[in-house]
Design a binder for these strands. Structure first.
Lengths: 123, 123
DNA sequence: ACAAGGAGGCACATTTTTGAAACTAGGGAA
DNA sequence: TTCCCTAGTTTCAAAAATGTGCCTCCTTGT
């Protein structure tokens, strides 16, 4: 099977784990929030409501590990703080992610309605 | 916070669950495979290598529930079969998904390398 | 008679993800 | 002195996702 210049399976077997990584519950939100400007730990935490410290840390570590996010410690400041920002690679991901967000934003009402109707039809 | 004409959190709190739905291990693959043309159950199963019957069924039911995929039974045929196809809504998702796939396809080598280097630096 | 293909269903087990709560450690303020 | 802020870590528990194996039902082919 071919999609554009990709084949499924083949390329998509490698792509799939990356999409899972990127498409998890928090990663997208963190990337989009960092797409504006560098931010500090607790600042991100406040903007991504309901994220636990643990999940924020895990998410950021994963993004750092993959080279999508940079972590910088300002030890000389007072209080010393940590700043997270997108790398160049991270920035290239923003556009396709925004496209998906826009789709979701446009269609979530429709999807919720479809799901409700499907429930109702189940009897 | 604002991104284009969206706000985070706010819109993105609704968007997040949708991205999670779409971003699971199999959904993207199934959607892309159906983006070409309608296909039958076992046909999809062969193209998405390693998917279990159970997960294919679960994935398809979820997509059907959300109105992204249509299920049609051809009972009069011999053997009777079931055909799955993207709905109109489903088709609108293909473009943003392909954009993401393209990004992943372009960058997965870099990401894997970053991850390996991060491992190595951990000592 | 028996296998094979088509389209699943069901129950259970395992794996992965996520959450909640407590704890650390250093400095500043009341 | 005790509380708060910074930025986390650690442990345990709960929930969700995924896989495995076995069963069904129908029909056609050998």
């Amino acid at each position: 099977m071919k999609l554009g210049n990709m084949s499924v399976p083949g390329d998509c077997e490698r792509i799939s784990p990356i999409l899972s990584r990127v498409g998890d519950k928090w990663t997208v939100l963190v990337i989009l929030i960092l797409s504006e400007e560098p931010k500090r730990y607790n600042q991100i935490r406040r903007e991504v409501e309901n994220i636990s410290q643990r999940m924020l840390t895990v998410t950021l570590r994963g993004l750092e590990r993959d080279g999508l996010v940079m972590r910088r410690v300002f030890a000389e400041k007072n209080p010393p703080w940590v700043e997270y920002s997108l790398t160049e690679l991270g920035h290239t991901l923003v556009e396709p992610l925004l496209a998906l967000c826009k789709w979701a934003s446009t269609n979530y009402l429709l999807i919720e309605e479809n799901a409700r109707n499907a429930e109702a039809t189940c009897n």
